[in-house]
């Protein structure tokens, strides 16, 4: 499904060039669950943004379903992000003035779904994350764990095949964090691909396939199931 070939991403910091990604090669098959671990600044987030088509490689190729993403224009990239990729962020990124339901509804709105179809889907999604009774609550009326569950429901709105989670438990206490991870893993059980970025080895080791990042380089961890 995903193929990174010799991908590098460079940043200029002052007059120095930093390799956020340094010659990364990676193949991800449909339905895989993999974690990316490493210290902060090692390039984990950059890798995730790149996989999510929010960023482009400076060198190398990124093939999504065999198509070179460098050739895609804004419209195509936007459509791929909308329909094929779901994001879950460390800081939830909910729109503060919209209710839980409104936040979950956003991707469907952007995709032009008619209202009745959206309503039904939003209800099902909020039920699936256990927030059916919080649909009308605004983010500031929800706990951290609840917010992240809204974000997960939103990520699944258009039934994406790839879910990218960037430190999804980083802002939660341990109990809530475990709940969120359970929820995410339940998503994988539905046959989606899940990429989990975390600096927490305990969480990372729950994934069957584990990647390590150091200074922009990617290593397959031993014991990983490829």
């Amino acid at each position: 499904m995903i193929r990174l070939e010799h991908v590098s991403r460079l940043y200029a910091v002052g007059d120095q060039v930093v390799h956020a990604l340094d010659d990364v090669n990676l193949v991800i098959e449909p339905g895989e669950y993999l974690s990316v671990m490493g210290p902060s600044g090692s390039g984990k987030s950059t890798l995730l943004h790149l996989l999510g088509l929010l960023d482009r490689p400076d060198r190398g190729r990124y093939l999504f379903h065999g198509e070179d993403t460098a050739r895609l224009d804004d419209r195509h990239l936007a459509r791929l992000r909308r329909r094929h990729i779901g994001f879950v962020f460390q800081f939830f990124h909910l729109v503060p003035r919209l209710s839980a339901a409104g936040n979950v509804e956003l991707p469907m709105m952007l995709d032009g779904w008619p209202l009745p179809r959206r309503r039904a889907r939003v209800r099902r999604l909020l039920e699936a994350v256990g927030l059916a009774d919080r649909a009308r609550h605004r983010p500031d009326q929800l706990s951290g764990g609840q917010r992240q569950r809204v974000a997960i429901a939103r990520a699944l709105a258009l039934d994406p095949e790839l879910v990218l989670a960037d430190e999804p438990t980083g802002n939660l206490d341990q109990a809530a964090g475990h709940e969120i991870l359970d929820l995410l893993e339940a998503v994988v059980a539905q046959g989606r691909t899940l990429v989990l970025v975390t600096h927490d080895p305990e969480l990372g080791h729950r994934a069957p396939r584990r990647l390590q990042m150091r200074d922009g380089r990617l290593f397959e961890s031993p014991g990983g199931v490829g």
């Binding site: 929010l54 936007a78 990124h93």
Partner: peptide
């Protein structure tokens, strides 16, 4: 940024 991630075009 969020809207872009959710698939909004520029």
């Amino acid at each position: 940024g969020l809207l872009r991630a959710l698939g909004a075009e520029t």
